[in-house]
Design a protein around this nucleic acid. Sequence first.
DNA 1: GGTGCCGGTTACTTCAACGGTACCGGCGGC
DNA 2: GCCGCCGGTACCGTTGAAGTAACCGGCACC
Lengths: 124, 124
Amino acid sequence: MPVPLPADFFDPDCPVQTVPVLGGRKWAWKIMRCLEGGPRRFSELRVPLAGITAKVLAESLRAMEYEGVVVRTEYDENPPRVEYALTPLGRTLLGPMDAVCDWSRANLAELLAAREAYEREPSA
Amino acid sequence: MPVPLPADFFDPDCPVQTVPVLGGRKWAWKIMRCLEGGPRRFSELRVPLAGITAKVLAESLRAMEYEGVVVRTEYDENPPRVEYALTPLGRTLLGPMDAVCDWSRANLAELLAAREAYEREPSA
DNA sequence: GGTGCCGGTTACTTCAACGGTACCGGCGGC
DNA sequence: GCCGCCGGTACCGTTGAAGTAACCGGCACC
């Protein structure tokens, strides 16, 4: 297939650029999983996300809210309560995420082997 | 669904941690697409990846090689030639990637709308 | 002998995500 | 009065990806 790639191979507003959550956010996938079963409170999320700090969790949730996959609901009760949940849009993202997770699970051994092989012979 | 999430909700070596390429690397998805049609040379890749610098392309390719989705082949010709190609493992990743791309394409309007809405009313 | 291409490398800078610590206001309980 | 819980914010430092710019050796061409 010797056809050279053209300079306009990519759409200037290629949808990949708009993929939320998936890029550069360490905790986002796990947060999605935690919300899969229903709305959760801030401190409730901190339990399974062992090691996350309040700051990073707040940042991540706000970013995911910005991207439209999470909603934040503040209840004017006493004591005040805040709940985070997936939006319908966010819920539709779970499918494609599953595909990637399944791939990763299925190829875990090969992935780890590749890294080891590279370290033995970096760019032969 | 009021069942609280347990502290060991996530497998300590959860496969999500091992997803290559997808996290934190700006150009990796596009590079995958460029290699989809067959092996490419370094300078050949720079054409469709408008704006990428030699340094970042070299770094990205090396990282992808480390993760086992790309192979680098050096031909001892004159002038010397280097080709990059997807590994079989890398090729199997295209499927899940397509799922995410399709999702993004299908929901592009909603994604952009969510961001605009957030900017009008940040965390109401 | 100078210019350019190929496939990079090196050094320096910028930026965003992450992590750590400290602290806040409003409330309830002791 | 004091402590702690809840849901954060403010400040600071670190890291790692990305960008900028300069340069390299080997070869071909003129």
